[in-house]
């Protein structure tokens, strides 16, 4: 940089940036980017809470939050892509002959660097957020383990069955008391199944001669749909049952009615 009297003064990065922002094409693109980002933010805030089933456990709550946050994280990327999508479509060439040549831009190192940097940062945010959620769920599981209700889940081609060893109850329904941590010990009598009590936000495969653990705490009364999420042959679609998150007294009544002893 030479002295201040130089007539061919190089613009500072700040000046170049503000000049860049004043370009018509940049402004148009930025406006579209803002618009689409907003669309995706709104979509993220409404789509999953609207369509995902009732949140009935701590884990399900975390999952729904995570889906919304991830949509927010990716919204700027969608905004960027869709802005250029729209901007170029609005300036499309009409006719049966090829369009006139456009500007010969072969590269833009700053552009590539900024894009890669921002994309990496967004990815990193998603990774860190996901790892934190993963960790907090694992920590909660460890903390809750001592007073948890153990349910042994067995997948069989094509029926689920549940055993409550501490209560002496076996059932084809998954009934649980509210606000008490529950540990599922999942296994299979034959091929692979995947235990999926939908509203609890839990999923774990059932493998023959192996036990898979899953844990959560039901926080809301209501019906649970239990499904199989791993293709297991002929009647995979019908390998479903239901259950209920009950008040403690209702649960104890049910246990007694099944011939078990309440804990």
């Amino acid at each position: 940089m030479s002295d201040h009297n130089d007539v061919h003064l190089e613009p500072t990065p700040g000046e170049r940036f503000s000049k860049f922002l004043k370009r018509g094409d940049i402004r148009e693109t930025l406006a579209w980017a803002a618009f689409y980002t907003a669309v995706f933010v709104v979509l993220g805030a409404y789509f999953y809470p609207k369509w995902m089933p009732t949140v009935m456990s701590t884990d399900m709550k975390a999952i729904e939050r995570l889906m919304v946050v991830f949509t927010f994280i990716s919204a700027p990327v969608c905004g960027f892509v869709m802005s250029i999508f729209t901007q170029t479509l609005r300036h499309r060439h009409k006719g049966d002959t090829p369009p006139p040549d456009g500007p010969m831009i072969r590269n833009n190192r700053l552009g590539v660097a900024v894009f890669s940097g921002v994309a990496s940062l967004l990815t990193l945010t998603a990774v860190i957020y996901g790892l934190i959620e993963l960790n907090s769920s694992a920590e909660a599981a460890t903390k809750d383990a001592p007073n948890a209700l153990v349910v042994e889940v067995t997948g069989n081609q094509w029926v689920w069955s549940f055993n409550y060893p501490s209560l002496g109850v076996e059932s084809n329904m998954l009934n649980l008391p509210i606000d008490r941590p529950v540990i599922f010990r999942i296994t299979s009598a034959d091929v692979n199944h995947s235990f999926w009590p939908v509203q609890l936000g839990v999923k774990a495969d059932a493998n023959h001669l192996a036990t898979t653990l899953a844990q959560t705490t039901p926080t809301k009364l209501g019906t649970i749909d239990v499904k199989c999420a791993e293709l297991c042959g002929l009647y995979h679609a019908y390998m479903e049952t239901s259950g209920e998150v009950m008040t403690v007294s209702d649960f104890n009544n049910w246990v007694t009615a099944q011939g078990g002893h309440s804990a």
């Binding site: 094409d25 960027f80 892509v81 250029i84 499309r92 060439h93 500007p103 831009i105």
Partner: peptide, 17 residues
């Protein structure tokens, strides 16, 4: 993301036929 960038950068300020 880089794949997207290449396509978007090529489209950028062009008049697509």
């Amino acid at each position: 993301g880089l794949i997207f960038l290449v396509i978007l950068g090529t489209l950028w300020n062009g008049k697509p036929w």
